[in-house]
């Protein structure tokens, strides 16, 4: 019950000073990035997003995830206590050369995006045999 983690959603920053066309807030989703032997797993918490409202683009080596959230303000109700804001999600990552761009897979379940970024064959760790001369 005594949670000590800051759960405030962070708003995403536009680096190039551009503005959003839609009048909604854009948040920075919380992510986990785990590197395994053959792949890198990226998990992003994006509640309110499903497979239809998510956009993943890979431009050169920048991977951008964008999740659109339906604000869905209930009718006939008045907001009387607000702890979290509702808005879209956006976050960009720079991929290294070692990712196999053709085989990136993405799934969304319960508002969590999972991306599997497989490492290219060349980048996988190779064991070098040492022979006695």
């Amino acid at each position: 019950m005594a949670d000590t983690v800051d759960i405030e959603k962070k708003e995403a920053q536009t680096t190039d000073g551009t503005e959003h066309t839609r009048e909604v807030k854009v948040y920075h989703p919380a992510v986990d990035i785990v590197e395994k032997e053959k792949e890198i797993l990226l998990t992003a918490d994006m509640p309110g997003v499903d497979d239809k409202s998510i956009d993943i683009t890979l431009d050169k080596n920048v991977l951008t995830i964008y999740g659109k959230v339906d604000p869905n303000v209930p009718q006939q109700y008045q907001a009387s206590y607000v702890e979290y804001g509702i808005g879209d999600y956006r976050r960009s990552f720079t991929l290294s050369e070692e990712i196999d761009r053709q085989r990136i897979e993405a799934t969304v379940k319960n508002g969590v995006l999972k991306l599997v970024l497989p490492k290219a064959e060349a980048a996988k760790a190779k064991k070098i045999e040492v022979r006695a001369a």
């Binding site: 759960i7 994006m46 309110g48 206590y81 702890e83 508002g111």
Partner: peptide, 24 residues
């Protein structure tokens, strides 16, 4: 800020609506 999950609460004369973000 520290209570998890964060909630939003809407009220009307007819009732209360509570929403919470629980990803995963």
């Amino acid at each position: 800020l520290r209570q998890y999950p964060a909630i939003n609460l809407w009220t009307s004369e007819e009732g209360v609506l509570v929403s919470a973000e629980l990803p995963g």
